[in-house]
Design a protein around this nucleic acid. Structure first.
Lengths: 300, 300
DNA sequence: ATCAATATGTGAGATTTAGTCAACTGTTAG
DNA sequence: CTAACAGTTGACTAAATCTCACATATTGAT
């Protein structure tokens, strides 16, 4: 009495065969060969010690025992399929919430959001400003887009999208008064910075071969902002020279609202997509692919 | 949308775990290690792209998604188990019908039937006289017991129980008038035979070194019977010398109603249990074992 | 009648799935 | 603070399942 249950795969084969009235059709539905289904049915016969099908012409037909089994098993499998389909549907129809820092959201993602939604409508994408400092921490988001430096924690999946590049930017009006050929002349100007990225100016200065002490002094005469977003607005307004991820000023450089006379440098940070553990890859992969494509296009 | 169904074994692990509230308990019920169940659950999470359980203290608890899945899947599995149990019960409770030739039934099986039923009550044994000449042919019986000669057809399972032995038997009263030392003297007596076993006398005569021509002549003076059963009654009544399977006269020999002065010889035939293809081995094996034991005991 | 087409059954071997074992992490209770 | 418990995971192994190719049986068409 211990094991009245036969192997489940055999029951599934039975259910499909009984419903479709054909071994071959059932095999087709289950994406296996008819031989595989035939074996499963034989194993069921042996399990129950009674024939569930009899040959009928060149096909098969249920025996009375088979018919009685089918009535219950058919309903059970219908229930099973329905339950799984409902859950799958719930998961797929749920909006995909992408968290992202405000500056990246405002200056890069939002201008592209309409196209993203048109190209990946099945995501039902929702974007929110990320609140936590650690991207993987928020549990109520499907993914987080952010610049961050390796190493990354182990219990989350982090997809690297591109290296961060930063550049010093200035309004064209202000640039007219600077000798942009020599980086050092920059230090005479008002430097704009944000506390959220204290390493940005030192990294840039270092790459340009400038003395850190000189930079410190220049910064002390500069202006700080709470947020990268305000910093960039200040640069556009011609308040001074700002340092910013190239990605966030790309549109401004193209439109001529800002210029970056000293080029850009790569930092150790990477633009990453952080995925909590159980994120459905069917949903995150198209988004990752779209982001990579979008970022790649901009480089050309 | 193709494959909304995860592997069924993973669903079963989920159902048991959700119902019992514990991976270890589920593993126990399914007779596997907890590691195996843990893997199955993980594969389900990945299939649906959502966590179905969360760690809760040192155990686990269903997530809202998990709870919704459980409600349907639990019922479906209950249905499945019930359907299988019902069928299994039907098969096990159905009487086991054993067919058997009339003579074997009357002179060997019926005297032992009460004990057989007492020792194997779960069989709910029913015996019927076999109608078909070919033992495997009848479809409405669970098994057929009969003497038959190899080779046997391929599509039925035939279990050999013992070699057939035949012996010439005579009533003690009649034996008093025969010189039983020499087989040849037998030919002077009235030979009793049945058309259903034409080879019996020739086989016996051959084994005793008698001429077939002489036998033919003796047989022509003898008496034929429709059925082995009448033949044996005739021998008991002292009408002449009969030839019969030793098994069928064993009880008569023991009681002294018949004697077999010339011993017995083995024929190519075997006492066999014929099993149609889908006979449940859980039911036929105890019967076969009982028969073998019974036959073995008689040889001692 | 014979041949092609259709449907199912089966032996042998390959592949995939699922399971075991043992080590590891985290939690609770004494 | 240790021991017992509950679950997860890496590496390996065992077993179930599938495929392929061939065999058998029925049906319909030439």
């Amino acid at each position: 009495m211990q094991h009245s249950m036969p192997p489940l795969s055999a029951l599934r084969a039975f259910e499909a065969t009984a419903r479709l009235g054909s071994v071959t059709a059932a095999a087709d539905e289950l994406s296996v060969t008819h031989g595989a289904v035939s074996r499963q049915l034989k194993s069921l016969d042996e399990h129950f010690g009674v024939a569930l099908f009899v040959k009928s012409g060149r096909g098969i037909a249920l025996t009375p025992h088979g018919e009685r089994l089918q009535s219950g098993v058919g309903e059970a499998f219908a229930r099973l399929k329905d339950s799984c389909a409902v859950l799958k549907h719930e998961v797929e129809e749920a909006p995909f919430t992408l968290a992202c820092p405000g500056s990246l959201l405002a200056r890069w993602l939002i201008p592209r959001l309409d196209r993203l939604n048109r190209e990946l409508p099945q995501l039902k994408l929702k974007v929110v400003v990320s609140e936590s400092e650690q991207p993987g921490k928020q549990t109520d988001v499907s993914a987080t887009l952010a610049f961050s430096e390796p190493p990354w924690p182990e219990n989350v999946e982090v997809m690297e999208l591109m290296a961060e590049q930063i550049c010093a930017v200035v309004s064209p009006q202000l640039a007219a008064h600077i000798d942009t050929a020599k980086p050092a002349t920059l230090l005479a100007n008002k430097l704009l910075y944000t506390a959220s990225r204290p390493q940005a100016w030192p990294q840039w200065a270092n790459a340009q071969g400038l003395e850190l002490a000189q930079l410190e002094e220049a910064l002390s005469k500069g202006q700080g902002f709470d947020h990268l977003y305000y910093l960039m607005e200040a640069a556009v307004a011609g308040l001074g020279v700002a340092i910013a991820p190239k990605l966030l000023v790309e549109d401004d450089l193209k439109s001529g609202r800002l210029i970056a006379p000293w080029g850009s440098i790569e930092t150790p940070a990477r633009l990453c997509l952080w995925l909590p553990n159980q994120t459905n890859s069917y949903r995150s992969e198209p988004l990752a692919a779209w982001l990579k494509r979008e970022l790649g296009d901009e480089h050309c």
